[in-house]
Nucleic acid binder design. Structure first.
Length: 307
DNA sequence: TTGATTTGACCCTT
DNA sequence: AAGGGTCAAATCAA
């Protein structure tokens, strides 16, 4: 009985590893294709695509590492690290400005890059979410300090999303925003209908090379309010130009994608797609499977769209 | 050991 | 009073 389960688990693991490796190869190929296809004058897009691809590949690598080491990704750390809390210091320090509890870090566990992270460039720090700033730090060899934000609903809804915001050194009017973790909260201040309408734009941003998806379906996906909103900030630089400045894949991978209220089946499948993107990683080989991986995602979209 | 990240107390603004 | 920003210190990863 138990051995059967173990055997199944082993098979699943092999399958999963195979899928991840395939995805890794696909992402590598995607990177090469994107490098070739984007014109060299569009530096912003090029750099964002590059960053995004590196993130995909990094995620793949981590997923494989985790899989091979037998650890569950994002497994909750042991927050109640048992150290009993002594209270002696507080009263002694009562006339100091800040009281220090001897056990204040008992549950503190720095995240070891287990969560997906996505970096974007934006002219504004606003993203429709409510954040609480919890720290700021001057970064070594960096002109500008880095600000640390957590989701306002971290405690009331146990939302794990955080972000770091830092002014770009190249362009101080631009913020480099790194999102980590995913919003699990339902923020009542977010409402899709508040988002601006999306202008018409070409039906596909990236040619996915899929025979299973029609241009109309791509149009639905990438002209949806979700994608429009996600690219809103980046497009602000050129609001009159309906041509997207960065790849739809990037928006597909934005953690804030979850912030939007997808129709139920779509939400489910977007979750899958996001997971897949998140599961890709470090590039070491380049092979053939781009179409397969992307097709897989689109195939799932097809399922949704045909619902 | 160093630099980055997170915590929690304190203070300010609304 | 509640919520958010600041800051020193604790903690962690490299």
């Amino acid at each position: 009985m138990e051995s059967l389960e173990q055997e199944n688990s082993s098979i699943d693991r092999k399958k999963l590893t195979g899928v991840l490796i395939q995805g890794q190869e696909s992402a590598t190929k995607l990177k090469i294709l994107l490098q070739e296809s984007f014109s060299s004058e569009d530096h912003a897009t090029n750099s964002m695509v590059g960053v995004t691809i590196e993130e995909i590949l990094g995620s793949f690598s981590r997923a494989l590492t985790i899989l091979n080491s037998g650890k569950a990704p994002g497994a909750p750390v042991d927050h109640q690290a048992t150290t009993p809390c002594s209270e002696e210091q507080e009263s002694q320090n009562s006339n100091k400005k800040r009281k220090i509890q001897s056990c204040r870090r008992a549950g503190y566990r720095r995240r070891a890059n287990l969560y997906s992270c996505t970096r974007i460039l934006s002219k504004t720090m606003e993203d429709g979410r409510t954040w609480r700033k919890y720290g700021q730090k001057d970064i070594f060899n960096s002109k500008y300090p880095r600000s640390y934000f957590r989701c306002t609903h971290k405690y009331d809804q146990e939302c794990q999303a955080t972000r770091q915001v830092q002014q770009s050194e190249d362009d101080p009017s631009t913020y480099v925003i790194t999102y980590m973790g995913e919003h699990t909260c339902k923020d009542p201040t977010i409402s899709p209908h508040l988002l601006p309408p999306s202008p018409p734009r070409p039906s596909s941003i990236i040619s996915f090379g899929s025979e299973t998806t029609t241009d109309d379906q791509k149009e639905i996906l990438f002209n949806s309010p979700c994608f429009s909103a996600l690219k809103q900030e980046i497009d602000e630089e050129a609001p009159s130009n309906p041509t997207p400045r960065s790849s739809s894949l990037e928006f597909l991978m934005s953690p804030d994608l979850e912030a939007f209220e997808w129709p139920a089946p779509m939400a489910e499948y977007m979750g899958i797609a996001l997971d897949r993107c998140d599961a890709m990683s470090d590039m070491h080989s380049s092979n053939s499977c781009l179409d397969m991986e992307i097709n897989t995602i689109l195939f799932e979209f097809d399922d949704v769209l045909s619902v």
